[in-house]
């Protein structure tokens, strides 16, 4: 379970998060929507301890993410993350991309790490690409590789940061299908997304971020279909 309490985050003088409270239960899918600069991606970076916070607390399974004693490299093994830019490791084959972290971080044997990597790659539909170099693949395939690479660490949570935003429109579908697959597996996910229709379809909760605060939060029906706040309505009318 992820508990976020009154989180404040500043970049210099700019306060990007102004007191965020959120809870994500095991097996739940939370989608975060909102305009650019609303702080939604920053929150993901804070959950993963890539960014620190100035105030508040983020608890992942009883671990205080930003406490001094927390071993953040270890914590990140619990939290898989996929980014807007897929960041495939260009010097490694698809299989090596997915097998690297299990081997060097989790210290699995070479065989075990390859076994896990193959499973996850097959799961996202890249079973025929093991020996290909990622730069030879489409953006959609590379993004699915990024998902498999994160899954190979067997994380308890997955964080997705606008993972379809940099893709050509015709490639978005295959990546969203992969997310649907994860949902069926019962993976706990936080998706920062601009795909409103997708958010409505797969989410248990939707949070609408506006200028560093959660403007509106609830089920997809509440937030997307019947938004109460004017800012939410305005945002949705622009993107839908």
């Amino acid at each position: 379970m992820i508990n976020i309490r009154n989180v404040h985050k500043c970049f210099g003088d700019l306060e990007v998060l102004k007191g965020i409270d959120l809870d994500v239960n095991k097996g739940e899918v939370l989608s975060i929507i909102g305009g650019s600069g609303s702080g939604k991606s920053t929150l993901l970076y804070c959950i993963n301890a890539i960014e620190n916070i100035q105030k508040g607390q983020i608890i992942v399974d009883d671990i205080d993410v930003h406490a001094k004693k927390t071993y953040q490299d270890k914590l990140r093994q619990k939290l898989g993350m996929v980014f807007q830019q897929w960041n495939s490791f260009p010097h490694l084959t698809v299989l090596e991309n997915a097998a690297l972290a299990p081997r060097i971080v989790k210290k699995l044997s070479r065989e075990e790490s390859i076994e896990v990597a193959k499973q996850e790659l097959e799961h996202v539909g890249l079973g025929d690409k093991f020996d290909v170099y990622p730069t030879k693949m489409s953006g959609g395939q590379q993004q699915r590789l990024a998902i498999a690479r994160a899954l190979a660490m067997k994380p308890d949570y997955m964080l997705f940061d606008e993972i379809t935003s940099a893709l050509d429109p015709e490639l978005v579908g295959e990546v969203l299908d992969t997310l649907r697959l994860l949902r069926e597996d019962g993976m706990t996910m936080i998706c920062v997304t601009h795909e409103i229709a997708f958010a409505r379809e797969v989410s248990d909760q939707v949070a609408f971020f506006n200028e560093g605060i959660i403007e509106e939060m609830g089920t997809p029906e509440q937030v997307i279909s019947n938004p109460q706040k004017e800012t939410t309505q305005k945002f949705l009318s622009k993107v839908l």
Binding site: N48, R76, G80, F83, Q85, N87, L100, I104, K106, R149
Partner: peptide, 21 residues
């Protein structure tokens, strides 16, 4: 690129592992 390093760190790699691998 910095984002490549962040991706590696997000997989649980340490600073030095990110450098070497």
């Amino acid at each position: 690129h910095k984002s490549m390093q962040i991706a590696a760190r997000s997989l649980g790699m340490s600073y030095w592992q990110t450098i070497f691998y």
